[in-house]
Design a protein around this nucleic acid. Structure first.
Length: 377
DNA sequence: GCGATCAGCT
DNA sequence: CACAGCTGATCGC
C-alpha cells in the first residue's frame, strides 16, 4: 500500500480518501468549508453535523458510512494509476455522538484505528461487532486512543455517574446548577440526569441546535425559566464565574472530567490543590489486589464546585480489556501530547508478543498532537 | 484576508 | 506539573 493513500483525521492534500472518526476540533483541524481534497467518509451522525459546523462545505464530498458493515473501496494510486481495492468497517466508538473507529483490511493486512473511544460497560454492540470482524481478520496494527493509558487513570463506567450527579443536584434543592460541557459529547449524562430528576436542561442556542440534529427532543431548552439546571460551555465554567453567579442566586457547578484532581486553585488555597492523583497512585502501588473503584468519583473541591469522574475516553483498565480483545500484532498510540505519555506497549506489549520491545517515553514530543496520518503499509 | 500555528486558560 | 478543548494572538503567504 502506498504511503498516505488514505488519511484518518488528517486533511492535508495527497490522499485519495479521507476518514473522519468524529466531529471534535482536534480531529477536524485542517478541515474548513473550502476543503476539497477528496472523498470524506464518516458516520451518518457526523455527516449530519457538517452543515452547521462548516456552513459552505461541499456536501457532495461526504460518503456516509453504514456502521458495522464491510465496505469495499477502489482507489487509483496517483503514481502508477493502478486500481487499488481494500475494505473497511466503521464501528461505534462510544466516544461522542457519531464517533466511530475504522477497521481496514486489504493486501497491506488489517489495521484498526480507534480514534477516541470509550470501552465501558455499555459498548456490548461494538464489542460483538469488533470481535466478529477480527475473528476472520486478525489485526496487524492497532492505532490506539492512549489518552489515559496509565494505571493512575481509573474511573467508573459512565452509567454509574448520572445518579451521583442527580444526588448532588437533589441535595441542593434551592440552588441553580451549572454543568460544564463541550460543543459535542456528554449528552447521555445530561439525558440521564434529566430523566432521574424529571427536569429539562438549559443549553445555549448553538448547543440546542446540535441537540436537535442529534435527535434529542423536548429534553433541552434555551428558556431559563423552565429549569434550574443549565449545561454551559466548559470554557465559561470557573470558580470565578460561580462566585459571580452566587452574588445573584445560590449556584453550584458540576464539572464532569476524567481527571480527578484540580489543576488550579482559587484564592491561593493550597489545600484545594489536587493530590488525588498521588493518592490513587499510592493505592495502586501499595496493594497487589484489584484497584479500588470509585476513589473520589465525586469530589467537592470548593463550596460552589464539584468534579465528577465522567470521561468519554477509556480508562486504563478498559484500554487493557480492549487490547486483550483485539490481540494486535503491534500497536501505536495516537495521542502524544502528555508529558507522562507512556507507549501502550510498555503496559500491554506482552499481549502483542515480543516482536516489539516496550518503550517508555519520558520526553514530551515536540509536536503537540500525534501525526494521525496512516503511515506506509 | 485566510489558514496554520502557538500561547494561554479552565 | 499533569487532560481536552476552546479562544485569541501572531506569523506567513
Amino acid at each position: 500500500m502506498e504511503s498516505g493513500l488514505i488519511s484518518v483525521d488528517r486533511w492535508k492534500r495527497g490522499s485519495e480518501a479521507y476518514f473522519l472518526t468524529h466531529m471534535h476540533s482536534d480531529n477536524t483541524r485542517g478541515l474548513c468549508s473550502k476543503w476539497s481534497n477528496g472523498p470524506l467518509f464518516c458516520s451518518p451522525t457526523t455527516a449530519s453535523l457538517f452543515p452547521s459546523r462548516f456552513p459552505a462545505f461541499d456536501l457532495s464530498l461526504i460518503r456516509v458510512v453504514t456502521l458495522s458493515s464491510w465496505i469495499s473501496l477502489s482507489l487509483r494510486t496517483p503514481a502508477s494509476g493502478d486500481a487499488f481495492t481494500f475494505h473497511f468497517m466503521a464501528i461505534d466508538a462510544h466516544h461522542c455522538p457519531g464517533s466511530v473507529m475504522f477497521l481496514f483490511r486489504g493486501d497491506f493486512g488489517c489495521f484498526l484505528y480507534t480514534g477516541d473511544f470509550r470501552w465501558d460497560s455499555e459498548c456490548d454492540d461494538a464489542k460483538a461487532t469488533l470481535a466478529d470482524a477480527i475473528n476472520h481478520f486478525p489485526v496487524d496494527v492497532l492505532y490506539l486512543d492512549n489518552t489515559y493509558c496509565n494505571p493512575i487513570y481509573n474511573f467508573p463506567s459512565r452509567h454509574l455517574i448520572a445518579p451521583l450527579v442527580a444526588d448532588i443536584i437533589a441535595s441542593h434543592p434551592s440552588h441553580d446548577i451549572i454543568i460544564g460541557v463541550d460543543s459535542l459529547g456528554k449528552e447521555e449524562l445530561l439525558v440521564r440526569i434529566s430523566r432521574i430528576l424529571n427536569t429539562k436542561i438549559w443549553v445555549w442556542p448553538e448547543r440546542l441546535h446540535t441537540m436537535h440534529l442529534l435527535g434529542f427532543k423536548d429534553i433541552f431548552t434555551t428558556d431559563t425559566t423552565l429549569t434550574r439546571v443549565r449545561a454551559v460551555p466548559r470554557q465559561s465554567f470557573s470558580i470565578q464565574t460561580l462566585v459571580e453567579l452566587n452574588t445573584m442566586c445560590p449556584t453550584i457547578g458540576i464539572m464532569p472530567s476524567g481527571l480527578p484532581w484540580v489543576k488550579r486553585t482559587y484564592g491561593g488555597d493550597a489545600n484545594l490543590s489536587g493530590s488525588l492523583i498521588t493518592a490513587s497512585y499510592n493505592a495502586r502501588k501499595n496493594t497487589n489486589g484489584p484497584r479500588k473503584k470509585n476513589l473520589q468519583t465525586v469530589h467537592k473541591f470548593h463550596d460552589y464546585m464539584y468534579s465528577v469522574q465522567y470521561s468519554d475516553h477509556s480508562c486504563f483498565e478498559e484500554i487493557g480489556d480492549f487490547i486483550k480483545l483485539v490481540q494486535p500484532k503491534s500497536m501505536k498510540g495516537i495521542v502524544a501530547s502528555s508529558s507522562c505519555y507512556v507507549d501502550p506497549l510498555y503496559y500491554f506489549g506482552r499481549i502483542c508478543g515480543t516482536s516489539q520491545p516496550p518503550e517508555l517515553l519520558l520526553m514530551r514530543p515536540q509536536q503537540r498532537r500525534g501525526n494521525k496520518a496512516i503511515p506506509s503499509c
